[in-house]
């Protein structure tokens, strides 16, 4: 028995290798919905309004990965399950989906009609909010590597808090794009609101605790 456990131990990949394998798997799984929906689009299986469906699917997956990214910290605090090492991957998947969503809007929907797109950004609140969210995600994605984390130090943490604004803008973007008040955008908005409220609550409690000490 002892002997067999030893062998198993030797065969088990080191934590670093295991992490890399799991991260690669997460990327593969993460990109699968995009591959699938583009496949359906190019083979004309997305129904009557394929452009709208493609945009919506990519947009909703952006929100899902954003929510997954924002769930990592509360999950660790509340249950002890730590997915902290995969948070960067989830955040980058969010960014890549946002980029695909935007590219679909620019290239397929509006065919690079820059005049119309510029007018949209200025005049259409839902586009304005979407663009704001994407604009925030760009510097966050660019600084998502070990080198930048080291170089920016505490600035990095502050910079990456902007994701809260990006999440709010993305949720509002979804609410504004539809007529009336259907359920899905409200549900996504509520989930994001809860995740942000959790952080705000923690922040306020911490400040209250710190204040008497400072006095």
């Amino acid at each position: 028995m002892l002997h067999r456990t030893d062998v198993a131990k030797k065969l088990r990949p080191s934590p670093a290798v295991r992490f890399r394998l799991l991260r690669a798997a997460l990327y593969w799984v993460g990109f699968a919905p995009a591959v699938w929906v583009f496949y359906l689009g190019f083979t004309n299986q997305l129904g009557a309004n394929p452009v709208r469906t493609l945009e919506q699917e990519l947009g909703i997956w952006t929100l899902r990965f954003l929510i997954a990214t924002l769930t990592v910290t509360p999950l660790r605090n509340l249950t002890g399950i730590s997915l902290l090492r995969y948070r960067r991957t989830l955040g980058l998947l969010t960014f890549y989906y946002a980029l695909l969503h935007f590219a679909t809007y620019m290239l397929i929907d509006y065919r690079l009609d820059l005049q119309a797109i510029t007018a949209d950004i200025v005049k259409r609140p839902y586009i304005t909010f979407g663009m704001l969210a994407l604009a925030i995600l760009v510097p966050l994605a660019v600084t998502s590597n070990d080198r930048m984390v080291r170089r920016l130090g505490s600035t990095w943490t502050k910079l990456h808090r902007w994701v809260y604004l990006a999440a709010t803008a993305a949720a509002v973007h979804y609410l504004l794009v539809v007529k009336s008040w259907p359920l899905e955008p409200i549900v996504y908005f509520a989930i994001i609101a809860v995740l942000l409220a959790y952080r705000l609550g923690k922040h306020l409690r911490r400040r209250r605790r710190r204040r008497p000490a400072a006095a």
Partner: peptide, 22 residues
């Protein structure tokens, strides 16, 4: 006259595939 939240200048014809032109 645009909808307050989107333009009414163009329209997407339904059923013309992924590369339908507005």
């Amino acid at each position: 006259v645009d909808h307050p939240r989107w333009s009414q200048a163009t329209e997407l014809p339904i059923g013309q595939g992924l590369f339908a032109k507005r």
